[in-house]
Simulated scan of single mutants.
Amino acid sequence: MTDHAFSDAERRAVYRAIAERRDMRRFVPGSKVDEDVLSRLLAAAHAAPNVGLMQPWRFLRITDPRLRHEIHAMVDEERGRTADALGERAVEFLSLKVEGILDCAELFVIALRDGRHAHVFGRRTMPHMDLASVSCAIQNMWLAARTEGLGMGWVSLFEPRRLASLLDMPDGAEPVAVICLGPVPEFPERPMLELDQWAFARPLAEFVGENRWE
């Protein structure tokens, strides 16, 4: 323990948010999120660590119902293609609920901004660090949402170029995530994919090594 550590209660709250974060698909239809809460969530995302202080993110709030339905249709098309690619697990996959685009209170598209090539610091040999930085922003938003009692789901079932065109993104910008956000009926104790018998998390010990890859 150091002089810079949080109090016991504060530490428990941080670890609780991490442990109880879930990738949510079921939302309360017709619900709302207060503007001040949205401001806090976006501020949390914007505070994320980012290589070379490049801040490679853009947060697009989707308030046009027509756009929301077009995004949903795009995701639904990719859902079918993903099922085809899964072969013998196709029917099982199609039984899963994989998004809440039409039900969530708020819909965001989070993207990599254009002009990222100008940032060399930290990216010369690892250009994908821009994506890593955006992922940190999404995780910040996710944890902050959990502390506000809101569910959040990351949807990646879309063709990036089509979504970029739909949202008039400039050349070089790339959508990373469709984010569903809002009140939810409940937070399950285990990840949704475990409850749906799709996949199961493996223990930490399998992922930790020392000095060499084992």
Results as ranks from 00 to 15, higher is better:
F27Q: 09
M129N: 15
E106Y: 02
A145D: 11
K32T: 14
A199Y: 11
D103I: 14
D3A: 10
G209W: 01
R16C: 04
F207S: 05
R79T: 15
I110Y: 06
S31C: 03
M129S: 12
L166K: 15
P29W: 04
V184N: 01
A45F: 03
L167Y: 00
F200T: 09
M1T: 09
A47Y: 01
D196S: 14
S133E: 03
L193I: 15
H4F: 09
F59V: 07
V33F: 00
G80E: 00
V155I: 15
M1L: 07
E148V: 10
F108N: 13
H4S: 13
I110L: 03
E77C: 03
R113D: 06
V208N: 06
D130E: 13
K97G: 10
L166P: 13
P183Q: 05
I101F: 01
V120K: 15
I18V: 05
T2Q: 12
A5Y: 07
L166E: 15
L42Q: 10
A13E: 08
L67G: 01
E78W: 12
D8F: 13
R124L: 09
R79K: 15
E206I: 00
E35C: 12
L181F: 08
H46R: 13
R116T: 14
G87H: 12
R61E: 14
L60Q: 03
F158Y: 00
P183C: 05
A105G: 10
G209T: 03
D84Q: 13
W154N: 02
E70I: 07
F93H: 05
V120F: 15
L67N: 06
I101D: 02
F59Q: 08
A43G: 11
A19R: 08
H117I: 08
L94E: 00
H69K: 03
P160Y: 06
L41A: 11
M129T: 13
